[in-house]
Simulated scan of single mutants.
Amino acid sequence: MSLKIGDLVTRYSYDEDILFRITAIQKDGTYELKGEDLRLVADAPSEDLNKIDDDERLKREKEQQKKEAQCYHLFRQDHRLSREQSDYEMTSNYSTSTPHYFELRGRVLHLDGDPGYLQKCTMMYERLGIPIYGAHMKETEMQNQVASLLEMVQPEILVITGHDAYTSAQGEQKEAKAYRHSRAFAQAVREARKVVPQLDDLIIFAGACQSYFESLIRAGSNFASSPARVNIHALDPVYIAAKISLTPFMNRVQLYEILRNTLTGDDGLGGIDTKGVLRRGLPLRDDTEM
Rank of each mutant, 00 (worst) to 15 (best):
M1N: 14
Y12V: 15
S13P: 06
S13Y: 01
E16W: 00
Q26I: 02
L33R: 04
K34Q: 14
K34R: 15
G35D: 00
E36L: 06
A44N: 05
S46H: 08
S46L: 07
E47V: 11
E47Q: 09
N50K: 14
K51F: 02
I52T: 13
D53Y: 03
E56C: 07
R57E: 13
E61Y: 14
K62Q: 05
K62A: 12
K66P: 00
E68Q: 10
Q70K: 15
F75R: 00
D78G: 01
L81N: 09
S82L: 13
Y88A: 06
S92Y: 03
S95A: 11
T96F: 13
S97Y: 06
T98A: 04
Y101H: 10
Y101F: 15
E103H: 02
P115K: 10
G116N: 14
G129F: 01
I130V: 15
I130Y: 05
G134D: 04
M137E: 09
K138P: 03
E141V: 00
N144K: 13
E156S: 15
V159W: 01
G162F: 09
A165N: 08
G171V: 12
K174Y: 11
K174D: 15
E175Y: 09
A176C: 03
A176E: 11
A184Q: 11
A188V: 07
V189K: 00
V189E: 02
A192M: 05
L199G: 02
L199C: 00
L202M: 10
I203H: 00
A219M: 05
A228R: 11
R229H: 10
L235V: 09
D236T: 08
L246Q: 15
P248K: 04
L255Q: 13
R260S: 12
N261R: 14
G271A: 11
D273L: 10
K275C: 04
L278E: 11
R285A: 09
T288F: 15
